[in-house]
Design a binder for these strands. Sequence first.
DNA 1: GTAAAATGTTAGAATAGACTAACAAAATTT
DNA 2: AAATTTTGTTAGTCTATTCTAACATTTTAC
Lengths: 217, 217
Amino acid sequence: MVSLTEENYLKALLSLAKEKGEVNVTDLSKHLGIKMPTANSMMKKLAEKKLVVYESYKPLRLTEKGKKTAGLIIRKHRLTEMFLVDKMGFGWEQVHEIAEQIEHIHSQDFFEKMDELLGYPKFDPHGSPIPDKNGKMEWISYQTLTHCNVGDVVHLAAVTNSSAEFLKFLNARELKLGARLRILAIESFDKSMTITYDGRSDEVLSALVCEKLLVTL
Amino acid sequence: MVSLTEENYLKALLSLAKEKGEVNVTDLSKHLGIKMPTANSMMKKLAEKKLVVYESYKPLRLTEKGKKTAGLIIRKHRLTEMFLVDKMGFGWEQVHEIAEQIEHIHSQDFFEKMDELLGYPKFDPHGSPIPDKNGKMEWISYQTLTHCNVGDVVHLAAVTNSSAEFLKFLNARELKLGARLRILAIESFDKSMTITYDGRSDEVLSALVCEKLLVTL
DNA sequence: GTAAAATGTTAGAATAGACTAACAAAATTT
DNA sequence: AAATTTTGTTAGTCTATTCTAACATTTTAC
């Protein structure tokens, strides 16, 4: 049995591993908003449950069992987000918080029904891949907008931040997944970008925003 | 702030108060499957939070605040059950367990959206009233089938047990809410009833079943 | 290649929620 | 009304999850 708390640790480990490759206790505790010793003792506990490989002073790793467990929680999270947007009419900026809670519901049937009603989606409303029933996730390698050049024309494929604050910022600029973006200029001083898309022309996006936007050619 | 555990105590207090008028610690602990001292100390805690009136050796009562809080949890539970049945295609026997978890989700918006999508229903799939946004519940006084007589023709309005086991039993007999029941005979020995409805004739229901069926004339 | 800084670990304490054992009060029986 | 049974309370323990303070190791800087 994995507690709600343990589930949150596993999820954090998986997403930090994605971003960084390796995970250390400092990053984990910062990500979860807890103190380092708390994270540390939980790692020992998860190691006993064979969900984490823990060796003193070494980076943390999820075991296969841990990866699968974490993947299945993320699956529930993303199916929920998709359901909330597609079937209940929420905006993509509203669903992260709610999904954060619903992902801990213990009912296979509930999430299978969602999956079925949604027609077995592969991506959530923020463009993130939905893991399969074995917790396996296709890790698509998009580029951040930051890495593009003047003149490039790309499509917005995903965002790496699902906070309401960030997504409201994008809403205000009518910037949606799938949008075709043309890069007009890059300010060398602060790396801010001037782009054009849909009805909007000459929108300026700071580097902080650009690095959260994943694009495809 | 009310914890998930506290919410479950409040819900138990409200439903026991409905059944019995007064609530004592023994019934409460049995209902929740915990030991008496555990319930007792939680009652003191809820009394400090002004949710329960607690006096040594006296029956337990919810305060107005406690009733409202409990009513709002039941509202979330029943809206969820209705949503699961009406919008997601679950059977009425599948939804209690799932709703038991979803009722603890903290998001006004989530339940308001359900309510809206459902068209502001007044009853859940088991015929129980859905409390309003102030946690107030209309307490409709149905009769149990047990109290009817031979020759009576009544309609099944609600069931007082939402367990999968009981509802599967009714499913197997195609006994649904709204069904028009005619009482053909009552066995004086064990109070079992022979009834006819819809396509079914001469179904025999034990007193144990009959007392869980609420009917209107 | 030490010294300083960053990171990780251990030990001990707090809170929530559950338990058992022992005791106290109230209700019921005879 | 005394004895018995049921019900309620108190005290102390346990586990999960968190914390702070102190200490240890590793990494980085000079």
